[in-house]
Write a protein that binds this DNA or RNA. Sequence first.
RNA 1: GCCGCAGUAGCUCAGCUGGUAGAGCAACGCAUUCGUAAUGCGUGGGUCGGGGGUUCAAGUCCCUCCUGCGGCACCA
Length: 655
Amino acid sequence: MVAITLPDGSQRQFDGPVSGLDIARDIGPGLAKAALACTVDGEMWDLTRPIERDASVSLVTAKDEAGLELIRHDAAHVMAEAVQELYPGTQVTIGPAIETGFYYDFARNEPFTPDDLGKIEARMRDIVARDEAIVREVWDRDEAIAHFQEIGEQYKAEIIADLPAGEPITVYRQGAWKDLCRGPHLPSTGRLGTAFKLTKLAGAYWRGDARNAQLQRIYGTAWATDKQLKEYLHMLEEAEKRDHRRLGREMGLFHLQEEAQGAVFWHPKGWTLYRTVQTYMRRRLEDAGYVEVNTPSVVDRALWERSGHWAKFRENMFTTQTDDERVMALKPMNCPGHVQIFRQGIKSYRDLPLRMAEFGSCHRNEASGALHGLMRVRAFVQDDAHIFCTEDQIVSETKLFCDLLKSVYRDLGFESVTVKFSDRPEVRAGADETWDKAEEALKAATNAAGLDWTLNPGEGAFYGPKLEFVLRDAIGRDWQCGTLQVDFVLPDRLDAEYVGEDGAKHRPVMLHRAILGTFERFLGILIENTAGRFPLWLAPVQAVVATITGEADDYVREVAAALGRAGLKVETDLRNEKINYKVREHSHAKIPVIVVVGKREAEERTVALRRLGGSSQEVLALDDALNTLRMQALAPDLARLASESEGADQRDQVA
RNA sequence: GCCGCAGUAGCUCAGCUGGUAGAGCAACGCAUUCGUAAUGCGUGGGUCGGGGGUUCAAGUCCCUCCUGCGGCACCA
């Protein structure tokens, strides 16, 4: 007898070994049809694998996250079968399910072409139509290795040889084809359905290591239903429309060109946006007790040797040699410069924490393949700062920083932030005891700030552990923006010191920190997140005043001038065009407010406001419109100040 | 940096097996003064990414370099 407990707590008795499919049939034919796999005491099992002991079982269908993952994993297998049928001699390696689909890495001398994708996909649909049963087998380890070597599957043989000793070696057959796989799998290829599509070809290194052979990866997407697939493809199209590179061109924000690879040409509108964000950040930093500095871009190699950058960061640095043979480097980071300022004069413990900020212009020679629009550039400006403090101040400074960071992200339209904790990397400066201390201190501070974090092992900076603050963009990509790094190494290498309460000299700790990360990347994320429809305070052109007839020209100039005095960035449109044409054009340009003025408005001294995305307009007296827009165009921090002082005024009146 | 793909007008793209470049939008000009997402007519615009080669002839074929795109690797 086998007793099976179902998720609702009910129990069913079976005479002997029973499979997930048997259980599903026992419950009902609908479930038997929908079931793809089952979990046995929490572990995923194939639907047909016999359960020989009492267990808790739940059935997995395409509606479950786990079911969808099975579908994707099977799609990878069916693709591998199709590829090996069509291109004999191709070796299979690994093919997992991923976030929106699957991939499989193949070893083949001939490159796959985009045309091949269509052929492979068609063959996949044949295999699905054949509805081949998928059968699990457990093999002997040595036999498995010998077998895969014999049939020329070197990579599979290598994988088996590397599996831990106790691990069962399972092979899945579907029709005449078989693959080493941990499983589980669908009962048959027909269950995969039709909601899949091959999407792209790419190179990928064996085991993710650039020193290994390069394999050919084929990506696909797979879903439970055709409707989901269609929705996903539609989402991709929408994402493409808000790609910051496209919007940057369409909206005239910036451009890139080959003579300055990885460096941005900011156009007037883009630069206005940039300056709006920068001015905002400058205010926030000042309010948070930072001082702003500026340090040299071209600095003698000697300083980078002392700081450790020459040893650890050399390959990413641009260098230049002067006629007298001095080697200079373009700064890739601002920290050594800030230590030089700290070292001027004698610092006392009373000066700490010293929060030193710089909108530091840095250059890094990033790999050509890494460059990506504004997101990954070679010339960029960080909202960088270094907090020189005592060890005792690490926790409170970290907490203050995290609060500031969250507030800034919220103001800029980002609510959810994830945090990664990166500990010591292989290539690093500083003694292990120093790292122990730094990691411990940062962990304590993170917990004190009430942050949830995930560990990112070995990803710290060469001088210290770090926190990474990650935002997700509109296309679902994660971008690291903010960072906070604890550094006991640089103050030592560059000989920073302060006089303590005890009158003796001490090393300060440096906290390297940035909120936006770089302006370039952050603005790219901002463009994609808003799809170019910036909130009023950020829009580089906040309002266009457009005439209906030439008779209103003088009044329009007056309105525009008044809006300008109220602090808005305004343009006028006096062209002899129909108002339909103007509204359409400015709407496409994503201007937040179109101020429409005709003969009637000019006579009545009113304006008609039309908001981006809306289809109606609001007619207001000019003075009212000026007040309303002036308040709405305030940066969030200034708006908070304004509402506070308004509250104070009201309290004064009451008193 | 590696693998694959691509580069034709400001933008989006067409140009079959080689015979000396085309559309829409944009721009410019003229007419139109028209009340909330495209007024009409007309005009100009291209060393077909750079270099080299094959050929009577190259946007088209070959080589090479550059840049971009998608991944991988990298991302202090």
